[in-house]
Nucleic acid binder design. Structure first.
Length: 494
RNA sequence: GGGCCGUUAGCUCAGCAGGUAGAGCAGCUGACUCUUAAUCAGCGGGUCGGAGGUUCGAAUCCUCCACGGCUCACCA
């Protein structure tokens, strides 16, 4: 980090720091164990009226950051903030005596401990009358303004610590994020799933189609990739005899950054033996209802201008029917040349040499996806788009796969897992042809995964859910960066 | 990567027919023992993101660069 030249404001604070030291007070060495926190205080004493508090004579201590101060000369009102909230504190000269003069060395942002009597002011605010206070950490850098807070988006991401101090809704979002993951885990554990950890460093970046990050292991003299998905390892565990497994963790994709994409993102994948994608759709509804109800207290959730309704059952429609409903003609769905012509006529960009399935996928993204606001399962995708999914018995050109869309975004992707090793090898091989044509997003052949399938994997259903995107919806945030504590940014210029 | 927009005091923002920088909050000094965006009086604070250019003169106009935002492209 570069050294910022010391501004006047910082120098002022340095002076106060040395003034305290010359008085024998070490502002970083204070020892203080609060007896309570702001949440407890309001929970316990929030209902006590003035007289009741007076009669009880409640002595209490809290620690936190000074966030507001109103100086009246011989009395000072302030608010301190701890992890749970804020409470007003009241310093009086006639109570604190000599120590009262130390208040002039206090700054907004300092962390202090206070002990004293709980009372209510004339305006009826629950307040601590300070009998003793301790410096715990002197703040040398001024915090943003009390009224507008920190607005600058770049500063909010770079200095998330400041953002968290001054913008309460940010803290709420991340508390909710943790709850979402907690209830997700709880639901799966109650359903008999085992949580596992599989490698994040892969020798072959498989399980999805994406450009990986490369890294290097010195001792093994070997190039490695950060995983783009945990899928192939989790399925190895099905082979090994675990029947219900899940993993919550980061995956990494070396692609563009947007309000919906961060290079590292959190995903859950879970796998269930002896079930198929139909079972999984019901299960997904239950899972999302459980989380939404617990975290939001309702199945209806406001997201931007929308009211998302998680009440099951969610709409289910095949990919082709969804296209037809949007006015895509039958012959376009069946015929490559018609499809290409139709896409071009609608101004949809189609990469060169795209197959019919790819063209339909592009049309789908353009025409159908943005309108999938309420939770909707799109089912039965072309086999070519889904190299790890099991074919439908009655139509081998399609696979037993669904994607769940909410608010126009893909939230989950799931399928009945392909467990035929010969079919799997053939699908990898046909993908490899694309790789030879220069598509570096196509993974290399994973021979060990094929070997595992050859040992035998039970029929199973598996699903991946983008946690960040789910958190966005349940916390009403429009950018993925607002649900990731430290989103990736270029380094600061000096 | 393309297009559009932004970057001015610690923070939030004005100022942009080109004339040499302002407010509020925060800070400092003073007054005030029930305020809560406390109030009142006074004071200090800026390489106007960086580098070039045009001009007698640039925060303001032009070019390039950096960082960010939105958007498009990319994205199983």
């Amino acid at each position: 980090m570069q050294e910022t030249p010391l501004s006047d404001l910082i120098q002022q604070r340095m002076k106060k720091l040395s003034a305290l030291r010359s008085l024998g007070i070490e502002p970083y060495d204070g020892v203080f164990e609060p007896s309570s926190n702001t949440e407890e205080i309001f929970k316990k004493f929030g209902d006590f009226d003035r007289q009741h508090l007076e009669n009880e004579n409640i002595n209490i201590s809290v620690a936190g950051r000074l966030v507001l101060m109103r100086d009246f000369g011989k009395a000072v009102f302030a608010h301190i903030q701890d992890s749970k909230g804020r409470i007003q504190i009241y310093f009086r000269k006639d109570i604190l005596g000599d120590k009262f003069s130390l208040i002039k060395h206090l700054d907004i942002g300092d962390i202090i401990g206070v002990e004293g009597k709980l009372f209510r002011t004339k305006t009826n605010e629950l307040t601590i009358e300070v009998h003793r206070f301790v410096f715990l950490s002197k703040s040398l850098r001024p915090l943003p303004e009390k009224w507008h807070g920190l607005r600058d988006i770049e500063a909010r991401y770079r200095q998330r610590y400041v953002d968290l101090i001054v913008n309460p809704s940010v803290k709420e979002t991340f508390i909710k994020r943790q709850l979402i993951i907690k209830y997700l885990r709880e639901f799966l554990e109650n359903e008999g799933f085992l949580e596992v950890e599989t490698p994040m460093m892969h020798t072959i970046a498989g399980g999805a189609r994406a450009k990986p990050f490369k890294t290097y292991h010195e001792a093994l003299n070997m190039e490695l990739y950060l995983r783009i998905a945990p899928e192939l390892y989790l399925k190895r565990l099905l082979v090994g005899g675990f029947e219900r497994v899940f993993e919550i963790g980061k995956s990494f994709r070396n692609e563009g950054i947007s309000t919906k994409h961060n290079p590292e993102f959190t995903m859950i994948e879970f796998y269930v033996a002896y079930k198929d994608y139909n079972w999984l759709m019901d299960f997904t509804e239950k899972l999302l209802c459980y989380i939404t109800e617990k975290v939001c207290g309702s199945l209806q959730v406001k997201y931007g201008d929308y009211l998302i309704d998680f009440t099951p059952p969610f709409k289910r429609i095949t990919m082709f029917d969804a296209l037809k409903q949007k006015g895509v003609p039958e012959e376009v769905i069946r015929n490559h040349d018609f499809a290409l012509k139709w896409a071009n006529s609608k101004g949809i960009d189609i990469p060169k040499e795209s197959s019919l399935s790819k063209i339909l996928d592009e049309i789908f993204k353009e025409v159908v996806e943005p309108d999938l606001i309420q939770p909707t399962f799109i089912i039965d995708y072309p086999v070519e788009l889904s190299p790890l999914a099991k074919r439908k018995r009655d139509n081998p050109e399609l696979v037993e796969r669904f994607e769940l869309f909410i608010a126009g975004r893909e939230i989950a992707n799931a399928f009945s897992e392909l467990n035929d090793p010969i079919d799997q090898r053939e699908r990898f091989l046909s993908q490899l042809e694309e790789r030879l044509k220069g598509d570096e997003e196509v993974p290399e052949m994973d021979e060990d995964f094929i070997r595992a399938l050859e040992i035998g994997m039970p029929p199973a259903a598996g699903e991946g859910i983008g946690i960040d995107r789910l958190v966005m919806i349940l916390t009403n945030n429009q950018s993925i960066r607002d649900v990731i504590l430290f989103p990736l940014l270029r380094p600061e210029m000096k």
